[in-house]
Every structure is written in C-alpha cells, then in structure tokens.
Amino acid sequence: MDITFQMVMSQVMLGLNNGVFYAILSLGLAVIFGLLNIVNFAHGALYMLGAYVALLGFTSLGPLIGMPDFHLNYWAALIVAPLVVGALGIVIERTMLRRLYRFDHLYGLLLTFGLALIIQGIFTNFFNVSGDPYDAKPEILNGVVNLGFMMFPKYRLWVIGVSLLVCFGTWYVIERTKLGSYLRAGTENPELVKAFGVNVPLMITLTYGYGVALAAFAGVLAAPIYSVSPVMGSEMIITVFAVVVIGGMGSIMGSIVTGLLLGMVEGFTKVVYAPASSTVIFLIMVLVLLVKPAGLFGKES
C-alpha cells in the first residue's frame, strides 16, 4: 500500500484532534501540579464526568425536573459542565486535598486515585461500559469543510479551534497577567506570597477548580466524537500521564505543545504502522527517559 500525502495529512489532522484533548488535560494537570504539588489522578474521571453532565443534561435533566421538553443544549453544556465539575473540584479540594498538603505528595496521588475509582465505579454501575451516543451536536457544526488536501468534519475543526483558544488563553492569563503572576509566585514560594497579603489558600482552591473544569470542558467537546462511556477517562488519563512525563510539568506552554505534537505523532503512526499507534506515546516516553530524563521542557533537579 502506498502512503499518499492525503492519507498522512488526514491522519495527522485526526491526530491533532486527539492532541488538543491531551493538551487541555495535561495543561490542567500542570496547572494543578504547579500550585498544589499533587498529580490529579481523578483528572480522567472528571473528564468523563464532564461528558456525562452534557449527556444527562440533554437526555435526563428535563424529565427529572418535570419539564420533559427541556434539553440542555450543547452550547449550554459547554458552560454548565465545567461549572458543575469545577464546583465539585472545589468541594474536593476544601474537604479532602487540603488536609494532605503537610504530608508526602504521594498521598495526594493516592487520594485522587481513590476518587477516580469512586466516580468511575458509580458510572459503571448505571451506564453501559460500551458507551452511549451524544446526539446534541448543533446543526451548524454538521457537515465537512474542504481543507484543500482533505474533507474535514466541521465539528472536529471547531474542537481544534476552541481548544487551542482555551489553551493559549490559559497560557496568556498565567504568563502575562497580574493574576497569573500571583499564581506563579505562589508556585515558587507560597509562604512569601502569603506574607504579601495574597489569599493563597483561596488561590489554591480556585486553581484546582479551574484545572478540573478544563477537564470537564474537554469531556463535553469529546462527547459528540467518541461515545460517552464510564471508562473513557481511565483510558485517557494513562496516556496523558505519559504525555506529562514526556513534556515535564514545569512549563505551561511545554505541556500544550507536547500534547499537540504527540497527538499528531500518534495519527502519523496510524498511517505508517497502525498496530503501534496505541503504544507509540509510551515508546516515545521511554526514549525521552533515556535521552533527557527530566522531560523535554523540564528542568534538571
């Protein structure tokens, strides 16, 4: 079989589509890790939860509140799901994570692992593991666009565009605004920032809330593409961990770029040697560990 330019480009574009999910999720992990020093294992589960908020808002919310004709539409879900999951994140941070900052960072990983099991277990109990379709894709995003080298689904193009906007918006806020400078200072030395009168505990709570809201946002974006299933998060999180190891969590831009690139590499592998596409990110991780153990954008400690 000959490998044509079209084939490569179309798989790379589809890969980029996965890449933006890796980027949003690893960005969220990096933001949370920066301030809380916790690797949020529940990130995948909260991504899944975001997708379910959209799905249930569309199918079940109306009947539940006695208005059978009410459906939470896609655009509303893009706002509501991150808010709901963000609020849940704030509760998690306030009631649980907060108690662990004094201890070894590993406890944060273990706690969020437990939370991930709880969330995934609840949804496995009520929903089909093989997934349910989310049919609320807005009319305007149906159809395809001619990119010159291929016909590309409009919806996927929208996902790529809006995700890049959110990623670079987050980068801008953290690296270029005053609020972001508090955040970065808090990452470097929380005690000192506290002494300047900044409410660091509140900042930590909101950061966690924002990080998981990003995951939920990605979940809603993913819902019309993949079927919404209880295991969609756990499949995602392990890959994202590998992305994070490759990029290093020290840099916001690093995690975005790594996520995008690895998505495209994965897509490219699908053309060249399809069976390896599910492991190629892990193999790249091995390579990076051999050559540059601190990660592509990490600092040597």
């Binding site: 662990l100 099991l117 969330i119 995934q120 277990g121």
Partner: peptide, 18 residues
C-alpha cells in the same frame, strides 16, 4: 455487589489516606 465493589475500594482508599 458487582461494580459497586470499585466504589467501595475507592472509598476505602480515600478514608485510609485521610
């Protein structure tokens, strides 16, 4: 208990860590 077992295991994790 089927898949509730995952929920129980997760809860034990959380309680244990806290």
């Amino acid at each position: 208990a089927g898949s509730w077992i995952t929920v129980i295991i997760g809860s034990i994790f959380v309680i244990c860590v806290l």
